[in-house]
Simulated scan of single mutants.
Amino acid sequence: MRVLVAEDHRVLARAIANGLRRAAMAVDLAVSGDEVAQMCLVTGYDVLVLDRDLPVMSGDEVCRRLRGRDDSPRILMLTAAGEIADKVYGLEELGADDYLAKPFDFAELVARIRTLYRRSPKPPPLVLRHEGIQLDFARREVSVNGRPTDLTPKEFAVLRMLLEACGEPVAHRDLVRAVWDEHLDPRTTAVRATVSRLRAKLGGPDTITADVGCGYRLTP
């Protein structure tokens, strides 16, 4: 899942981003409304966490502009304006998909983002299976041949992408884009190291095939 956090309070923005990354999300940051608009033009985000009080271009204006696009991400308004009238305005007039007032509980933020992701035009199935491997997206649980298997957030996200690909290869760049974020060095060995650990947890080196020039796929 790719998330853009638009928040001009840099300390809060970094705290939100770090927490979402620990929840297996790829997170980019923006600190102004014009930056959000530009980033959404070049990157297909699943969810936008949007503060209403952004400089240069307000979050309200960003929301209005994005709502007119077919490829708009789901928008979660995040703001200190928590009165009922503010929420109604954000949802009905601006077209936000959800509204969360500050201060908020971080677990609720994560749950709301995941819910918005599941409400995408083509929502992912909640349980994915392949050759004895089962991934329960809602429960964040994985089992191999009925045996519970502990995965790190990155391993979980990589496995989900491989399962959703249904045996087709997933390119290295697509894994970087969806599981990590824009700051990851494209020459890094992080993807290869994560896949290697994932192979071991799934049962051995033959569980995931590396197709040269194509990417990684689950072995039939």
Results as ranks from 00 to 15, higher is better:
27 V>W: 02
16 I>G: 11
6 A>K: 14
30 A>F: 03
36 V>H: 06
31 V>S: 12
28 D>M: 06
22 R>I: 01
18 N>I: 00
17 A>I: 00
7 E>M: 07
19 G>W: 03
21 R>K: 14
13 A>W: 02
26 A>Q: 05
23 A>W: 04
9 H>A: 15
35 E>S: 07
9 H>S: 14
19 G>S: 03
25 M>P: 01
28 D>Y: 06
37 A>P: 00
24 A>W: 04
13 A>Q: 09
7 E>I: 12
32 S>M: 01
19 G>F: 03
16 I>L: 12
35 E>D: 14
9 H>K: 10
18 N>V: 00
32 S>D: 09
37 A>N: 10
5 V>Y: 13
36 V>E: 06
10 R>C: 07
26 A>T: 01
9 H>P: 00
29 L>P: 05
7 E>R: 11
22 R>G: 06
11 V>L: 14
34 D>T: 09
14 R>A: 15
32 S>H: 04
31 V>M: 09
31 V>D: 11
24 A>V: 01
31 V>H: 12
25 M>F: 12
9 H>G: 09
25 M>N: 05
26 A>I: 02
35 E>Y: 08
14 R>P: 00
21 R>H: 08
32 S>A: 12
22 R>P: 00
34 D>S: 09
36 V>N: 07
18 N>R: 10
11 V>F: 07
32 S>I: 00
22 R>Y: 08
30 A>N: 05
37 A>T: 12
21 R>L: 03
23 A>K: 05
31 V>I: 13
16 I>R: 06
10 R>T: 15
21 R>I: 01
25 M>Y: 11
34 D>K: 08
36 V>F: 06
28 D>N: 10
17 A>K: 03
15 A>K: 11
20 L>S: 03
21 R>F: 02
18 N>A: 12
22 R>E: 15
29 L>F: 11
32 S>L: 01
8 D>E: 14
13 A>L: 02
11 V>H: 13
31 V>P: 00
23 A>F: 01
